[in-house]
Design a protein around this nucleic acid. Structure first.
Length: 683
DNA sequence: AAATGATGTCATATC
DNA sequence: GCGATATGACATCAT
């Protein structure tokens, strides 16, 4: 009787819990109080409240809201209820009860596998449930039924999922581990556990211990409330102490004899149905939750992962027997194992887990909620969510693949480049590379890609079909990847043979070419031409070497006509370039010198002008003094009669002997005329 | 957008 | 005559 009571209690509590999972608090208290009030004292109220709030806190976690307390108090619960009632009053769609049906399907599946004795009753029950149209999907039911009848032995200890694949014991263990981690989160642990009771008492005992440890260690927020603490002793009469009330019920259920359990589960299901019928208002008043259960479940599991739960082994074992998703999970596992493991890896495994679990839910709910017009809502939501998770993981998978592959590809490119780069200089000696286009290794000419670019530019002189096929291969490869690589190979950077210091000062045409390919940034036109024709000499060498050496070089090596022409042109242009630069420099020097000369002459001119001014000034002073002297002299002169001499009629004449004569001006004019005549005659 | 300077290149002259 | 050099002229680019 004790077991019966426990199972009734457990069933009802499960029902309440499951309803709470979908955001509904079914008012079963009155029902339970009226029939099972002693049992209800143990854990029903707290359990439903607890799980409901816990579950909604997960929903918030899924929606990236702020993290909620994992142990919400009753205020939160009543707030949630109030809000849900408000939403319900708005006439929002009713939320289907597919969650409940899903777990019941698990229960049926488990019980169908327990033993043959139970199978008979189970099959009967399945048939009954199928006839009711509220339990199993017809396909699943029939397949399950067929499998069980034809190959019961094969399916012993395994759950059968709708797709026909099996959930073996390892899977169940995995699921159990996941749920064990989620037990504190309260997501239908009991329902799932009821499916897994077939594992036996030993295993259940182990689980019990693990449950306790996990409940005590992982979720501090899930510590039972005071009310729960008070009720714990009541649950200790048949249940193990510790953990949440749901856990207590679970443990109690696990201790049940399976034979009784199979009947009781069905009885509970019948009770549930009757309860739903009796409280149709309540079941119909199932309160909607926007985008609820699947995301919550998914996040529930992922949150279990986020709790540093080491599910690695379990998930791995789980994956190894999965189908496509398992293989994907394995790939993901292989990629991610090297790094921090548990989070993403387990998320992947959980995704696979959900993808394996929810088909059961899908089919079962579809079966169980055929009469519910909203039965597809949850299914679509479920699989949308799963798909989203899968897509997310696939996206992450791709990202990881890229991350992991890019270095390889990049390194491969580098290897290609380096290998080619290493290969060419070995054959880059002039003696071996000048005559044949097969020889790539001109000194300092690492790439022939310039030929195409050069030809495209139009700078080809002579036949540039020289090794064109090979160049084309190079060009396609180099235009993007080899551009910024060092082509100096074994040569030191300062010995880049194609780099002429004079050619880096700036070149107009070169700049125009440079814009065509980014590789041209460091190469002049002649350098590109020389590279294109595989000239085995550097431009600098061609330009700067002496004439005799240059002629010897031309005669020594078997160069084609185009090469010789190009070499001569390179030398001519190079020298002319230098000459032009020198010429301009000289011109500038000449201009500068002429400017200096102009300045100097200007200064000299100014000096002379100043000097002339000084002289003129002196002359003026002297004339003034001379005039004064005249006046002074004539003022003192007297004629024979003693009269003053008129200066206008007489003038002073200085002779070479220093004598001074006073000569009448008339006579002086007469003397000057014959002198002029004599001078003119002389000329 | 025009002016200007710098540079490369070609043609030509000169040595 | 050849090569080197010098230089004017032109084109192109950058400022």
């Amino acid at each position: 009787m004790h077991y019966v009571k426990k199972y009734f209690t457990e069933g009802l509590i499960q029902f309440a819990i499951l309803l709470s999972l979908v955001g509904v608090r079914v008012d079963v208290d009155s029902y339970l109080n009226s029939y099972f009030s002693p049992l209800l004292e143990t854990s029903l109220g707290p359990a439903s409240v607890y799980i409901q709030t816990q579950f909604h806190s997960l929903r918030y976690n899924l929606d990236d809201y702020s993290l909620q307390h994992k142990c919400p108090d009753l205020d939160y619960y009543f707030t949630s209820r109030r809000l849900l009632n408000e939403v319900k009053s708005l006439g929002t769609p009713r939320f289907p009860i597919t969650e409940v049906n899903a777990w019941l399907v698990h229960t049926v599946a488990r019980e169908s596998d327990t033993d043959s004795s139970v199978n008979g009753a189970q099959n009967t029950n399945d048939n009954e449930n199928n006839s009711e149209g509220a339990h199993n999907h017809p396909r699943q039911g029939s397949s399950q039924h067929d499998h069980q009848q034809s190959d019961q032995h094969h399916h012993t200890g395994a759950l059968v999922n709708p797709s026909g694949s099996e959930l073996t014991k390892e899977d169940i263990e995995l699921i159990d581990i996941l749920w064990r981690e989620d037990v504190a989160l309260g997501v239908g642990r009991e329902g799932f556990e009821s499916c897994c009771l077939q594992r036996g008492d030993d295993h259940t005992a182990e689980d019990r211990e693990e449950k306790e440890t996990h409940n005590q260690d992982s979720e501090t927020s899930l510590q039972p409330s005071d009310e729960e603490e008070r009720e714990r002793p009541a649950s200790d009469n048949g249940d193990l102490p510790g953990g949440s009330p749901s856990l207590s019920l679970l443990q109690g259920a696990s201790l049940e004899p399976q034979s009784v359990l199979g009947v009781d589960v069905e009885q509970r299901w019948q009770d549930f149905l009757s309860l739903s019928e009796l409280q149709g208002i309540e079941t119909e008043n199932v309160q909607p939750i926007p985008n609820p259960t699947i995301s919550e479940i998914g996040m529930d599991i992922s949150e279990a992962i986020s709790q540093n739960v080491s599910l690695h082994d379990a998930t791995q074992a789980f994956r190894t027997r999965s189908g496509v998703t398992r293989s994907e999970g394995s790939q993901n596992l292989l990629r991610l194992e090297s790094t921090n493991s548990t989070h993403v890896d387990l998320l992947l495994s959980v995704t696979n887990l959900t993808s394996e679990l929810f088909p059961l839910v899908d089919n079962c709910t579809r079966n169980a909620t055929n009469q519910n017009p909203l039965s597809g809502f949850l299914d679509e939501a479920v699989f949308d969510q799963i798909n989203l998770m899968g897509l997310g993981i696939e996206g992450m998978d791709n990202m990881d693949t890229q991350i992991l592959e890019e270095p390889d590809s990049d390194s491969g490119l580098s290897l290609n480049c380096s290998s080619r780069s290493l290969g060419s200089p070995s054959s880059s000696e002039v003696s071996s590379s000048s005559s044949s286009c097969d020889d790539e290794g001109a000194v300092g000419y690492s790439s022939d890609a310039e030929s195409d670019s050069w030809d495209a530019v139009g700078g080809a002189e002579g036949s540039s079909t020289f090794c064109h096929s090979q160049n084309s291969k190079w060009s396609t490869m180099q235009t993007s990847d080899h551009i910024y690589h060092n082509h100096t190979y074994n040569q030191p950077p300062n010995q880049n043979v194609l780099t002429s210091p004079l050619q880096h000062s700036g070149c107009g045409k070169l700049k125009s070419v440079k814009r065509n390919t980014s590789e041209d940034l460091d190469l002049s036109r002649d350098e590109r031409r020389a590279r294109a024709l595989r000239i085995p000499f550097s431009v600098q060498e061609i330009v700067n070497m002496p004439v005799d050496e240059f002629l010897e070089l031309l005669s020594k090596y078997d160069l084609t006509e185009a090469q010789v022409t190009l070499i001569r042109d390179i030398r001519r242009r190079g020298k002319n370039k230098v000459a032009a630069q020198n010429c301009r420099k000289r011109k500038l020097d000449v201009i500068s010198n002429l400017g200096n000369d102009v300045d100097e002459l200007q200064m000299q001119k100014e000096k002379l002008l100043k000097e002339r001014t000084q002289q003129n000034k002196s002359i003026g002073t002297m004339k003034q003094k001379l005039n004064e002297l005249y006046r002074d002299v004539f003022s003192r002169l007297r004629d024979e009669q003693g009269r003053p001499v008129n200066p206008s009629q007489y003038s002073l004449q200085c002779n070479n002997d220093g004598s001074v004569l006073v000569v009448p001006r008339r006579l002086m004019t007469l003397q000057q005329k014959p002198d002029k005549k004599t001078k003119d005659k002389k000329h």
